Amino acid sequence: MGVSGRDRDDAPTPVSVGVPPWVVSPHLLVSQAVGAALGAEGVPVVVHAWETFVHEAEVAISQGATLHVVVILDALDSRGVREKITRLLALGDVRIAVVTAGPPAPWWGGLLEGDAVEVVSMATSVLQLARVVQRFASGERLMDLEKRAEMREAWAKALDRRQHLVQTVRTLTPQQLRVLELLSSGRRVREVAVLLGVTSGTVRSHVKTLRGKLGAKTQLEAVAMLRQVHEVGDGADLVPRPRAVAAASEEVPARR
């Protein structure tokens, strides 16, 4: 995430900040730049490292602190971001503002039922980020009710689609699901056949049948559907993964 330099005519106006907000980002230089901009105006802020801030928040909350955390991101739709924000929210006694230059992914709507999380999509210069931190720490709401409701609705629709996909994948037989899982791992049809002790023709027959059940036009589309089901936080626990292939059978003869 790039950040622009400061313009003295556009400097942030000091506001009354209660609990010093935490500022975190996968890009430490970004959070440090925002912290420096606010510090120059006499606004207290605490910069934490991305790798450790959830643990540090857990310690602070266990000691009775109430936290205001501003998370600055390039993009929202990643496994690491999902895990950290969900873990942070589960601690309680925390307000979270997520600021990104990218569009919010639908899954964020699932965290907006209460008022502990706000998601803001905006340009991200240092000064703009500093203002967001100030507003958030002073108790101002960054999301209006209409935007919050819109994201909640998008999440509900995405969840309905995912549930339908989960139910569809459940119609596969254990062998069909196993074939699809192996293909999803990047193996070719011949390699899957060797691992399962069947012919390539049998594997192709399984693929044709499972594509029909899933409504997938291609093998790649079927693989993509399985990966969607197994995404973290989106129904992975609803469809059991096929049993692991024994390590000894994982050896596929090298091509000559």
Rank of each mutant, 00 (worst) to 15 (best):
G2R: 12
G2Y: 00
D7G: 00
A11Y: 07
V15R: 00
V15E: 14
S16A: 04
S25Q: 01
S25N: 05
P26G: 04
H27G: 07
H27E: 14
L29N: 05
V34E: 00
G35K: 15
L38Q: 01
T52D: 11
F53A: 07
A60D: 00
V69S: 08
R79I: 09
E83T: 13
R87F: 09
A90Y: 01
V94D: 08
T100F: 07
A105I: 13
A105G: 01
W107S: 07
G110W: 11
D115S: 09
S121D: 03
T124S: 00
R131D: 14
Q134D: 13
S138H: 04
E140P: 06
L145A: 10
E150N: 11
E150R: 15
R152M: 11
A158E: 03
R161Q: 12
R161M: 05
V169R: 08
Q176D: 05
S184L: 13
S185A: 07
V189R: 15
E191N: 03
A193S: 07
V194W: 05
G197Q: 06
T199R: 07
G201S: 08
L210M: 14
L210P: 10
L210A: 05
L210Y: 02
R211A: 12
K217M: 15
Q219W: 01
E221I: 12
A222Q: 07
A224R: 08
A224S: 04
R227G: 08
V229A: 04
V232M: 07
V232G: 01
G233V: 12
P242F: 15
R243M: 14
A244C: 02
A247L: 15
E251Y: 05
A254H: 10
A254E: 05
R255H: 07
